[in-house]
Design a protein around this nucleic acid. Structure first.
Length: 564
RNA sequence: CGGGGCGUGGCUCAGCCCGGUUAGAGCGCUUGGUUCGGGACCAAGAGGUCGUGGGUUCGAAUCCCACCGCCCCGACCA
């Protein structure tokens, strides 16, 4: 491709509204242009990268027996109502105004419908179906360039099996395929145990790229490899436990002591002996949650424990239902509440909690004796430096970008949509499903996050829009042009993708800067200086290494570089 | 949705606080010339409803109100 005729708008200056390196560079290098918040146009250079990433995905999906579909983005709203996901998605689901249609944010419903209508016998299984489709989600706040958009490409696949055992196999196939996809895309990534969230199902894992700009937070053990999203991460923190000296409860006056630290200081006890009470409500139940000391409640874990979402109760409601304000609430004698507690407090005694009376606390609380605890769950948010639950090593807590998520869905969707088959015994069974997603844009953005410097992008050859950036330093010199033209045609003939900067009247410095910004792995620089000796210069973008070689060797040098 | 910031030629920004001629700069663009190995130089040009609407005023990019858009933090995030 000759740059003189290629549409490639590059920018010298950083766009004002881009903060992440990948976002800045994708705009500056002419990969994308913003159209509206969270909506981007892919320009020819960017689309080349997109197609390469999609091709890697296709190859690895096909390798595990995946079959590619292309499904509509416009869906009748009825099938989303059948699975209850119109409500589950809420405002995130785009609705069409003048038809009862929605724009699909994912495709469980349609794929399941196709399976339901066509997969009737146990002989039809297993199946792996996938597509690479534009998804639409009305994100409340799009951000970070293409990383969180309202319209984006997702590779989504779905497996259909007869049993949970067979689902495990399909799930593992995907896990391995995903590792290959991300490795081939030149990404450093890790896998974490994750929360299934509103997707439901029996288990899930996320593929993550460490990044200070990541929206997710993960706990990592560098020793044994434990890795989990903070939504589910646990640590080997000590339980509060029982003290031998168990006394009967006693109300104590604690004026102006509201926070855990204030109460602990006032009573001169360790914060661990305090049981903090938090009040949440679901659509039908008021819930009191007991946490040890200053432990932070993890709302994702709470949702998992309750089986549904819960929101903090407002101050007015608090006073009405407990008789006290936040800071003085406690489990003893509390009516009409479901009471649950963090595992750290399991069967603990000699605790101090609120008395449901402003400025009073109750001491010597024994959760086995004085409180009807409805269950102990892991509800706390772990923090950096706590011990790994696997090996005891200190955990690291890092931000990360989610680039893929694999779910064991089980029968949630097949049950809702009545997708069943007849087994060998002629018995009707629900289809067992898995669903697996990859954010295609995120692979590109993360690749740039991990491979760039102040001058621009450093593409890995696997996803680089072109293999070679050929620059002719002086287009007015006939010899230079002739030599560059020859390199261009030789490379093309050899099947190497080459971008040829043949622009007239562009100074060498400008061309070099553009070459570094665009970031092709190999630069071939044809200039008068070296050509006089019959030489041509190669520059390797990732290392900055330069090499002057005889013109006749250029092709073989490049071939061998690209081959390994 | 809460908090904050921004909106002025294609891009990056100044001017606004303290209203007053033809609204500026750099980059980019056009033409001519000189340059030609790390974002060249000279000269001449083109290009702007100052986000939109309303208000105050003799007079609004500038002050007031409303709305829209974009970015950041938070909430949210199959």
């Amino acid at each position: 491709m000759r740059l003189s005729t290629y549409f490639l708008p590059t920018l010298k200056e950083n766009p004002a509204d881009a903060t992440m390196a990948s976002h800045r560079l994708m705009v500056r290098a002419g990969l994308i242009r913003p159209l509206a918040a969270g909506i981007y146009s892919w320009l020819p250079m960017g689309w080349r990268v997109m197609k390469k990433v999609m091709e890697i995905i296709r190859e690895e999906m096909d390798a595990i027996g995946g079959q590619e579909f292309q499904l509509p983005a416009l869906n009748p709203i009825e099938i989303w109502e059948e699975t209850g996901r119109v409500e589950a998605f809420g405002d995130t689901l785009f609705h069409i105004k003048n038809r009862p249609l929605v724009l699909a944010p994912t495709h469980e419903e349609i794929f399941t419908t196709i399976a339901r209508d066509n997969m009737k016998s146990y002989r039809d299984f297993p199946q792996i179906w996938y597509q690479i489709q534009t998804k639409f989600r009305n994100e409340p706040r799009p951000r970070s360039g293409v990383i969180r958009g309202r319209q984006f490409f997702m590779k989504d696949s779905y497996t259909f099996d007869r049993s949970f055992e067979e689902l495990d196999k399909s799930y593992l196939l995907h896990r391995e395929a995903y590792k290959k996809i991300y490795s081939r895309s030149g990404l450093k990534f890790f896998i974490v145990g994750a929360s299934s969230g509103a997707m439901g199902g029996t288990g899930s894992q996320e593929f993550m790229v460490e990044s200070v700009d990541g929206e997710d937070t993960c706990a990592l053990c560098d020793d044994c490899g434990y890795a989990a999203n903070l939504e589910v991460a646990s640590s080997a923190v000590k339980p509060v436990g029982r003290l031998d000296d168990s006394r009967s409860i006693e109300e104590i006056h604690t004026p102006n002591a509201k926070t855990i630290d204030q109460v602990a200081a006032f009573l001169k006890v360790s914060t661990d002996r305090l049981a903090k009470s938090l009040v949440y409500k679901t659509d039908d139940t008021a819930v009191l949650i007991l946490m040890a000391g200053n432990d932070q409640l993890n709302e994702a874990k709470l949702t998992a424990a309750l089986g549904k979402g819960a929101v903090p109760m407002q101050p007015e409601e608090l006073a009405l239902s407990t008789g006290a304000g936040a800071g003085s609430i406690g489990p003893v004698g509390l009516k009409n509440f479901r009471i649950i507690a963090d595992k750290r407090l399991e069967d603990a005694n000699e605790l101090i909690s609120g008395a449901n009376k402003d400025d009073y606390h109750i001491a010597h609380v024994d959760l086995m004796r004085d409180v009807k605890v409805d269950g102990y769950y892991d509800l706390r948010t772990i923090s950096a430096g706590e011990s790994c639950p696997g090996c005891g090593h200190q955990l690291r807590v890092v931000n990360a970008i989610e680039i893929g998520h694999i779910f064991k869905l089980g029968t949630k969707y097949s049950a809702a949509l009545h997708a069943s088959y007849l087994d060998e015994a002629g018995e009707e069974k629900p289809i067992v499903m898995g669903s697996y997603g990859i954010g295609v844009e995120r692979i590109i953005a993360c690749h740039i996050e991990q491979n760039h410097d102040d001058n621009g992008i450093k593409w890995d050859k696997a996803v680089s829009p072109f293999d070679v950036h050929l620059a002719s330093v002086n287009m007015d010199n006939k010899d230079v042009v002739a030599a560059a033209d020859k390199v261009y045609s030789d490379l093309k003939e050899a099947g190497i993708e080459v971008l040829y900067d043949d622009r007239q009247g562009v100074t060498p410095g400008f061309k070099f800067k553009d070459a570094d910004l665009l970031g092709m792995p190999v630069q071939v620089i044809v200039g008068e200086r070296n050509l006089k000796q019959g030489n041509i210069e190669l520059k390797f973008r990732s290392t900055g290494e330069r090499k002057v070689v005889p013109s006749a060797q250029v092709l073989s040098e490049i071939k061998s570089y690209l081959a390994n």
